[in-house]
Design a protein around this nucleic acid. Structure first.
Lengths: 192, 192
DNA sequence: TTGACAAATGACTGAGCACTCACACTCTAT
DNA sequence: ATAGAGTGTGAGTGCTCAGTCATTTGTCAA
């Protein structure tokens, strides 16, 4: 609503879109961006299938919104962790890493993100959304942890991507050497 | 072929399965394990849809075979690179990293792998196949690059997972700082 | 030749799915 | 009251797709 004319409450349609996204994230996480039926999203959001398409004209529009929402959540978690670290004098980079690990523990955000990366190659709209998300995240880390070298930034994101896979595979439940070693990484927790 | 009984040529059905897998990898790479229609796989493999289901009883069976095939390819590339490095006196770990980077350049194997990781959470059969693949790969690296510390193993695989995402997002085509920095990682190329 | 078995297919089926349309209902401003 | 805009839905429509079945074709041994 660009003009300041309306002093009234938020548009209900906008609220609906919000709650639909909230409901959609775990569903897309399960089956992926293409294989998730919109009927299930509508059911989970408690609205009719027809109305879902009034709110999001196509399934792809919905998928893009879901991916963007996931990146929003990660950015949010990083910001909060960094602010907290600044307050307590902790290392902000490490705080963000830990916040990420906590965030992906519930797997919904994690899996949406992984599905979006995998689908990015085939769907330009998803690719753009994923790139935007990564760019925002990268800028945020650089801003909140100033003085981090390019080398360290690379390691930071590499570790995050490994955590993604390790979590998606449920390595914590596997009693094998590869799972133990990779789940424990990084073990050092200081510079080299 | 475990028993030495049959001195005759390979079963033709087995050959077909091979060529179907070969054709299926790029197709699953595009749309993912769930959203790829079996009709397209059959068409690409040059067989009827009906016969596809004789060769692979369900779509999930086919998907598991495709995932396994991708891990086979990676293992193969690693083995060859390590053997070559042993011959020339190069660092085998670095050789394997480079071989991986070359392998995923064509994206088919890469994308199948990423789709499988994302789908692993929801599909137990895919999860098992992915874990098996990761386990094989890990063991291979440990065997071919003996003396590698757990820390280094973690970094090795973390870098690989970052390369996956960077490649899937086509970061090489993006003129932004995040893309440049992450695509360049790791820049050091020696121990710390 | 024939019998037997494996390879292979065309033509279905039944379910699910993205998306639409005509039609309510519910506000609020006049 | 009532018009008009926005919220919301039931009932489709036409298509796609996983999986099946009856049948044909190819191969080879006796």
């Amino acid at each position: 609503m660009p003009p300041a004319v309306a002093p009234r409450t938020l548009s209900t349609a906008e609220d609906r879109r919000e709650s639909v996204l909230e409901a959609a994230v775990p569903i897309f996480a399960e089956r992926g961006l293409l294989a998730t039926p919109t009927t299930e999203v509508a059911k989970a959001a408690g609205i009719s299938h027809a109305y879902l398409f009034r709110l999001f004209p196509t399934k792809l529009d919905l998928a893009v919104a879901v991916v963007t929402r996931c990146h929003d959540r990660i950015c949010e978690a990083f910001s909060e962790a960094a602010a907290e670290a600044r307050r307590t004098g902790e290392d902000p980079r490490r705080a963000m890493g830990e916040a990420y690990f906590e965030l992906i523990a519930d797997r919904d955000v994690l899996l949406c993100q992984m599905h979006s990366f995998a689908a990015a190659a085939a769907l330009p709209e998803i690719r753009e959304a994923s790139r935007r998300g990564f760019a925002r995240l990268f800028a945020l880390v650089e801003r909140e942890a100033p003085g981090t070298s390019e080398e360290e930034l690379g390691s930071f994101f590499a570790t995050g991507m490994l955590k993604n896979v390790v979590t998606a595979l449920g390595a914590a439940d596997v009693e094998e050497r590869w799972a133990r070693v990779l789940a424990a990484h990084p073990a050092h927790e200081d510079s080299c």
